[in-house]
Protein backbone atom coordinates (compact mmCIF):
# COMPACT_ATOMS: atom_id res chain seq x y z
CA UNK A 1 0.00 0.00 0.00
CA UNK A 2 1.29 3.41 -0.95
CA UNK A 3 2.24 5.62 1.95
CA UNK A 4 -0.74 7.71 3.00
CA UNK A 5 1.40 10.76 3.61
CA UNK A 6 2.84 10.59 0.11
CA UNK A 7 -0.64 10.24 -1.38
CA UNK A 8 -1.83 13.32 0.42
CA UNK A 9 1.23 15.33 -0.54
CA UNK A 10 0.78 14.28 -4.17
CA UNK A 11 -2.91 15.21 -4.20
CA UNK A 12 -2.14 18.53 -2.55
CA UNK A 13 0.50 19.32 -5.17
CA UNK A 14 -1.91 18.27 -7.91
CA UNK A 15 -4.51 20.73 -6.67
CA UNK A 16 -1.91 23.50 -6.35
CA UNK A 17 -0.57 22.85 -9.86
CA UNK A 18 -4.04 22.92 -11.36
CA UNK A 19 -4.92 26.12 -9.52
CA UNK A 20 -1.70 27.64 -10.84
CA UNK A 21 -2.68 26.55 -14.34
CA UNK A 22 -6.10 28.14 -13.96
CA UNK A 23 -4.59 31.36 -12.65
CA UNK A 24 -2.17 31.41 -15.54
CA UNK A 25 -5.00 30.90 -18.03
CA UNK A 26 -6.98 33.66 -16.39
CA UNK A 27 -4.26 36.26 -15.88
CA UNK A 28 -1.56 35.55 -18.43
CA UNK A 29 -3.46 34.05 -21.35
CA UNK A 30 -6.75 35.92 -21.22
CA UNK A 31 -7.63 39.55 -20.80
CA UNK A 32 -8.89 39.19 -17.25
CA UNK A 33 -5.90 41.09 -15.83
CA UNK A 34 -6.54 44.00 -18.17
CA UNK A 35 -10.17 44.06 -17.24
CA UNK A 36 -10.08 44.57 -13.51
CA UNK A 37 -12.38 47.34 -12.34
CA UNK A 38 -10.10 48.77 -9.69
CA UNK A 39 -7.48 51.24 -10.77
CA UNK A 40 -9.68 52.75 -13.45
CA UNK A 41 -12.11 55.64 -13.72
CA UNK A 42 -14.99 55.78 -16.12
CA UNK A 43 -15.85 58.57 -18.52
CA UNK A 44 -18.57 58.74 -21.13
CA UNK A 45 -18.70 59.72 -24.78
CA UNK A 46 -21.69 60.00 -27.11
CA UNK A 47 -21.40 59.03 -30.75
CA UNK A 48 -23.94 59.19 -33.53
CA UNK A 49 -22.58 55.93 -34.79
CA UNK A 50 -19.99 53.60 -33.28
CA UNK A 51 -19.72 51.33 -36.31
CA UNK A 52 -18.27 47.98 -35.36
CA UNK A 53 -16.88 49.06 -31.98
CA UNK A 54 -16.92 46.24 -29.41
CA UNK A 55 -16.87 46.18 -25.66
CA UNK A 56 -13.28 45.78 -24.38
CA UNK A 57 -11.86 47.47 -27.46
CA UNK A 58 -8.77 49.53 -26.62
CA UNK A 59 -8.84 53.24 -25.84
CA UNK A 60 -5.70 55.04 -26.95
CA UNK A 61 -4.18 58.48 -26.79
CA UNK A 62 -1.39 59.32 -29.17
CA UNK A 63 -1.37 55.64 -30.06
CA UNK A 64 -0.73 54.57 -26.46
CA UNK A 65 -3.13 52.17 -24.81
CA UNK A 66 -4.71 53.94 -21.83
CA UNK A 67 -7.96 52.03 -21.21
CA UNK A 68 -10.79 49.94 -22.58
CA UNK A 69 -14.37 50.30 -23.70
CA UNK A 70 -16.42 49.21 -20.69
CA UNK A 71 -19.93 49.36 -22.13
CA UNK A 72 -21.86 50.47 -25.20
CA UNK A 73 -25.51 51.46 -24.76
CA UNK A 74 -28.18 53.20 -26.81
CA UNK A 75 -29.76 56.38 -25.46
CA UNK A 76 -33.36 55.66 -26.37
CA UNK A 77 -34.32 59.38 -26.21
CA UNK A 78 -31.71 60.81 -28.48
CA UNK A 79 -30.75 57.67 -30.40
CA UNK A 80 -27.09 58.18 -29.58
CA UNK A 81 -24.61 55.49 -28.68
CA UNK A 82 -23.37 56.04 -25.14
CA UNK A 83 -19.90 54.56 -24.80
CA UNK A 84 -18.39 54.16 -21.35
CA UNK A 85 -14.62 54.27 -21.34
CA UNK A 86 -12.62 52.78 -18.47
CA UNK A 87 -9.38 54.76 -18.27
CA UNK A 88 -6.42 53.65 -16.21
CA UNK A 89 -5.90 55.75 -13.06
CA UNK A 90 -2.35 56.49 -14.17
CA UNK A 91 -3.73 58.75 -16.90
CA UNK A 92 -5.71 61.16 -14.73
CA UNK A 93 -4.54 64.37 -16.37
CA UNK A 94 -6.69 64.29 -19.47
CA UNK A 95 -7.99 67.76 -20.29
CA UNK A 96 -11.74 68.38 -20.06
CA UNK A 97 -12.08 69.44 -23.70
CA UNK A 98 -10.54 66.25 -25.08
CA UNK A 99 -12.24 64.83 -28.17
CA UNK A 100 -12.93 61.17 -28.95
CA UNK A 101 -13.10 59.37 -32.29
CA UNK A 102 -13.75 55.81 -33.40
CA UNK A 103 -10.95 54.66 -35.71
CA UNK A 104 -10.08 51.44 -37.42
CA UNK A 105 -6.70 49.81 -36.92
CA UNK A 106 -5.40 49.24 -40.42
CA UNK A 107 -7.70 48.56 -43.34
CA UNK A 108 -9.44 45.49 -41.92
CA UNK A 109 -8.45 45.63 -38.26
CA UNK A 110 -10.66 46.08 -35.24
CA UNK A 111 -12.09 49.44 -34.21
CA UNK A 112 -10.87 51.42 -31.24
CA UNK A 113 -11.49 54.75 -29.53
CA UNK A 114 -8.80 57.38 -29.92
CA UNK A 115 -8.71 60.39 -27.61
CA UNK A 116 -7.30 63.70 -28.89
CA UNK A 117 -6.26 65.96 -25.98
CA UNK A 118 -7.47 69.54 -25.79
CA UNK A 119 -5.97 72.42 -23.84
CA UNK A 120 -8.22 72.83 -20.81
CA UNK A 121 -6.71 73.34 -17.37
CA UNK A 122 -9.27 71.07 -15.78
CA UNK A 123 -9.12 67.32 -16.10
CA UNK A 124 -11.69 64.60 -16.75
CA UNK A 125 -12.96 62.82 -13.64
CA UNK A 126 -15.09 59.76 -12.95
CA UNK A 127 -18.48 60.16 -14.64
CA UNK A 128 -17.54 63.14 -16.85
CA UNK A 129 -18.63 63.33 -20.44
CA UNK A 130 -16.47 63.99 -23.45
CA UNK A 131 -18.22 66.73 -25.43
CA UNK A 132 -16.69 66.32 -28.84
CA UNK A 133 -17.09 62.87 -30.34
CA UNK A 134 -16.48 61.90 -33.93
CA UNK A 135 -18.38 58.90 -35.21
CA UNK A 136 -16.95 55.87 -36.89
CA UNK A 137 -16.38 55.92 -40.58
CA UNK A 138 -18.85 53.57 -42.16
CA UNK A 139 -17.58 52.22 -45.44
CA UNK A 140 -20.93 52.49 -47.25
CA UNK A 141 -21.37 56.13 -46.23
CA UNK A 142 -17.85 57.02 -47.36
CA UNK A 143 -18.36 55.29 -50.68
CA UNK A 144 -21.79 56.91 -51.07
CA UNK A 145 -20.34 60.33 -50.35
CA UNK A 146 -17.49 59.72 -52.73
CA UNK A 147 -19.83 58.74 -55.55
CA UNK A 148 -22.14 61.68 -54.80
CA UNK A 149 -19.22 64.12 -54.81
CA UNK A 150 -17.83 62.68 -57.98
CA UNK A 151 -21.21 63.04 -59.69
CA UNK A 152 -21.53 66.62 -58.41
CA UNK A 153 -17.99 67.37 -59.62
CA UNK A 154 -18.88 66.09 -63.09
CA UNK A 155 -21.85 68.41 -63.25
CA UNK A 156 -19.74 71.40 -62.25
CA UNK A 157 -17.12 70.53 -64.82
CA UNK A 158 -19.76 70.47 -67.51
CA UNK A 159 -20.98 73.93 -66.64
Amino acid sequence: MINKRWVEIAVGSFVVISLAAMVMLAMRVSNLSAFSTDGVYEIEARFHNVGGLKVRAPVTMAGVHIGRVAAIELDSQRFDAVVKLAIDDKFNHIPLDTSAAVFTAGLLGEQYVALEPGGDEKFLKQGDRIRIAQSAMVMEQILGQFIFNAAAGDKENKK
Binding site: F14, V15, I17, S18, A20, A21, M22, M24, L25, V29
Partner: peptide, 8 residues
Protein backbone atom coordinates in the same frame (compact mmCIF):
# COMPACT_ATOMS: atom_id res chain seq x y z
CA UNK B 1 -8.05 20.38 -13.22
CA UNK B 2 -6.27 18.21 -15.76
CA UNK B 3 -7.78 20.19 -18.64
CA UNK B 4 -6.51 23.45 -17.14
CA UNK B 5 -3.06 21.94 -16.73
CA UNK B 6 -3.17 20.65 -20.31
CA UNK B 7 -4.06 24.07 -21.72
CA UNK B 8 -1.52 25.94 -19.60
Amino acid sequence: MLAAIFSA
